[in-house]
């Protein structure tokens, strides 16, 4: 089994504070972490390797500091870590991100399974996984909370809003993993030491992915940011103070006024 896990370095949103005047995020001094659901993807890959043998490769696209995230993946136990970093990759939207990741994965040659997190806690689109599967032209199963592999078939349970769906497909395939899937392992002390003293994070730029610069970074991004703004603060709710029957009447008439009923 050759398993590729895509991981994104994100700001720890638990530690992010809002600038009270501008309402924007203060990113300065905020520690960076591996996107939480990417850790679930890593855990799933490592468990699978323990069962079936093989190799786990972590790939991330980002600035040079994303090296930290890949070292952590090495400390958790992945065999190989690749950082896609190049000025030409900067300013990528989700499609250009997926394209870059896809080109890199193709350069790896053969692979059996790609695991992505369901969603990044900063960008929040949940698009990169599905787009990457499209780029690689392989089947995808999203929102996976549980899966197993047998005879080169993957059977996965996806979480829907109102239930579960069980799907089956052939390898190679891409799954996006949710936080319900498992409890990620902690890096071990010897793992951390090995990650920094013995292992390396491979750095790939535009040359290594053999990418067409027109398809990457800002140039390759069909989405354009026209304006960014913080939504206005939510209006406080209103409590209708009246006897239950009267309160219900008022509530229904208000809902009708707003075409909610």
């Amino acid at each position: 089994m050759r398993i590729v896990v895509t991981i994104k370095q994100v700001p720890d949103t638990n530690e992010v504070r809002l600038d009270p005047r501008t309402g924007t995020l203060i990113r300065e001094g905020v520690p960076s972490i591996i996107n939480p659901e990417d850790k679930n993807a890593l855990e799933a890959a490592l468990t699978l390797r323990e069962q079936l043998g093989g190799e786990v490769i972590a790939i991330s696209m980002g600035p040079p500091q994303a090296d930290d995230a890949l070292r952590e993946a090495l400390a958790m136990g992945v065999d190989r870590a690749i950082l896609l970093t190049d000025r030409a990759f900067a300013g990528a939207d989700t499609w250009a991100t997926a394209t870059t990741l896809g080109m890199a994965i193709q350069r790896l040659g053969q692979f059996d399974l790609v695991l992505a997190g369901r969603q990044a806690i900063d960008g929040d689109t949940a698009q990169v996984g599905p787009q990457l599967a499209e780029y690689l032209n392989i089947p995808q199963i999203t929102y996976v909370r549980e899966f197993a592999i047998q005879d080169r078939q993957v059977k996965a349970t996806r979480t829907l809003e109102d239930g579960f769906e069980v799907l089956e497909t052939a390898l190679p395939a891409l799954l996006t993993i949710t936080k319900e899937a498992n409890k990620p392992r902690y890096p071990t002390a010897p793992g951390i030491i090995r990650a920094y003293r013995e292992q390396t994070v491979e750095q790939w730029g535009i040359q290594e992915v053999q990418g067409d610069p027109e398809k990457l970074g800002l140039k390759g991004s069909p989405t354009q940011v026209k304006r960014s703004f913080s939504p206005p603060p939510k209006e406080p709710g209103e409590i209708i103070q009246a006897a239950p029957a009267e309160a219900a009447r008022q509530l229904i008439s208000r809902m009708k006024q707003r075409n909610l009923l």
């Binding site: 930290d68 070292r71 890096p187 951390i192 030491i193 990650a195 920094y196 003293r197």
Partner: peptide
């Protein structure tokens, strides 16, 4: 060092 930082972060978590 980066190694010590990752170490501190992991033990803290």
């Amino acid at each position: 060092s980066e190694e010590q930082e990752l170490f501190q972060k992991s033990v803290r978590e």
